[in-house]
Design a protein around this nucleic acid. Structure first.
Lengths: 333, 333
DNA sequence: CTGAAAGCGCTAACAA
DNA sequence: TTGTTAGCGCTTTCAG
């Protein structure tokens, strides 16, 4: 464009990038020419010199080293992932940064992601690991690509992360259930190879021990609806007298609620239920779910901040930031 | 890199881009040098000359012209959107194309999206409109940006789209419910300003008329869980004798199922329920939902094909492709 | 079959 | 304050 504005391209560039030291009159003239010609600067040319794309990778990372379902499954439909994605978009969009959706399910896809980043397709990555044994954090660290994890990695890795105090969450649930008068408690945990699951469980058990309940029956799930149902069935079969359950995420809690209803148990009358996440599933439960709120929006904001900082200053030391959960009391407990 | 390979960069480029006419020996030498040096070609430089990015925009477009929730809400958590996103990723990833997640909720965000595309940040767009009166399709067409819609636009617009035969879907549900012996039917529709909702409803009503039921009570919802509950409550209040319901999507059906249970109605014994989409919500229903399957993966594949074709040949005439739904019989009807 | 050279469109020194 | 100039790192004619 826009030497039709009667100035040099350098000046146009300065106006577009909001650099001062440009005569207001000329600034105006350039703006008009832009509006008139419908000029849109070429991002590739721009990235080539600025070495920045305004794009980050938002990665849902599962285990998988072989081949699986060709469709990145219902991960994207998980209310938890949805809330994270929403939080990230909400905070990055005003800054003109947009996320590329990626799914790391196979060895190949992990390599593809690393290449994608190394080629400068994106400036950094936000990684949401949904299973243990994920090798992507290490690959990212080894390639020293700017990245932030949504949760503490299984093994220590020099990479920044944001997490919630899972143990505190477990304790909140325990305290609430005990305060409500529950005496025969049980819990449905997430996959026990995940630190998050371990910590929620440990926090719950420890708090229960303090309340004088040294042993708590536990059924392991994998954060899916169906696994929540199955776990609840097992618990009910082995411990029919249960009067309170802490479930490690809302989606499983939703499944558990259905099973309880099926077995004629009233919630919260016969059995009180507390979930975890405060995802949209909590409001889709009947009765609405009392749950431990994962402050995802705050965490997403912090991840955005951290990632951008790492992008700006590649040698910034890695940090972690732990958020405190709170109990949201609704009707299920 | 890699004049360390002892060849010119032109040759390296040829090897990387898999262009023939390269001596196998040299080809091998280049590959080794690449592996050795860990060379990764710069995508910006590449895009600058090829005018292609390998990125497309995946847009969830709501209505909204003012300001709303700062967080792109639970759209991303909707099982329907999740399935579309998964289908798109599944088909584009093998081709080395990745989607940027965008949310068009405000006037401003729509402009931002158009700029994003015009600046060459992405080669084209896939748009999933989740409300009527969306102006984005028109903006895209006016800017003649390569784009494909997930559904027929409300008003005719010169832009390609992929859709499902909603009327057929409604008919499938009607035929099944009647064949099952239901006599007092009702339906919960989606927002009636959406063509998709209108067509599902019309298809259902017309088929019912053929079966001798000229009038079918209808309650309008907006595709959310809560609206499904509310609609079912209304229906039950006004027509307590209902013995079959066609619900325009699975998420609302899930809500309806809960309400029916609450009112002591057995499903499918007292009331049979048929949903629409066959999203993950259908399997999370109790009993599992009989539903009209939206062939989203096939549709996503077709969208990918169409979009890439439009990107290759900018003057390709617009087309549409309508897919046939099928009935998936489970336990709810 | 391979190399040399000319840009792609922009930003960022450096002059003026 | 503005214009000139030199690349950013690649692909792609065009010679050889």
């Amino acid at each position: 464009m826009a030497r039709a504005a009667g100035v040099s391209r350098a000046t146009v560039s300065r106006v577009i990038n909001g650099i001062r030291n440009v005569d207001p009159a000329i600034q105006e003239r350039v703006r008009q020419a832009i509006a008139l010609t419908g000029y849109a600067p070429n991002q590739a040319a721009r990235s080539l010199v600025t070495r920045r794309t305004g794009v980050i990778a938002l990665i849902a990372s599962g285990a998988g080293s072989g081949e699986e379902n060709p469709f990145p499954g219902q991960i994207f439909a998980d209310p938890f992932f949805g809330r994270v994605a929403g939080g990230v978009v909400g905070h990055l969009r005003p800054l003109g940064v947009h996320p590329v959706l990626m799914f790391a399910d196979t060895l190949e896809s992990r390599d593809q992601i690393i290449s994608f980043l190394r080629q400068g397709n994106a400036d950094g990555a936000i990684l949401i690991s949904i299973s243990a044994g994920d090798t992507l954090p290490k690959l990212l660290a080894d390639a020293s690509l700017p990245a932030v994890l949504f949760a503490r990695p299984v093994r220590p890795i020099p990479i920044s992360y944001v997490d919630v105090a899972h143990r505190t969450g477990g304790k909140l649930a325990a305290d609430h259930l005990v305060a409500r008068g529950c005496r025969r408690l049980a819990t449905i945990s997430g996959p026990l190879d995940l630190p998050a699951s371990q910590d929620r469980l440990a926090g719950f058990q420890e708090a229960m021990a303090v309340h004088g309940h040294p042993y708590i029956p536990c059924a392991e799930g994998n954060f899916t609806f169906a696994s929540g149902e199955a776990a609840m069935e097992r618990l009910l079969a082995e411990h029919p007298g249960i009067d309170g359950v802490f479930v490690a995420n809302d989606v499983m809690a939703q499944g558990a609620l259905g099973v309880l209803g099926h077995h004629g148990r009233r919630v919260p009358g016969d059995v009180a239920v507390v979930g975890f996440d405060d995802s949209s599933a909590a409001l889709a439960c009947r009765p609405p779910l009392t749950t431990v709120r994962h402050p995802i929006e705050d965490m997403a904001a912090e991840m955005a901040r951290l990632l951008l900082a790492h992008i700006e200053q590649p040698d910034l030391p890695v940090t972690s930031r732990i958020f405190e959960p709170i109990l949201v009391v609704r009707e299920s407990a």
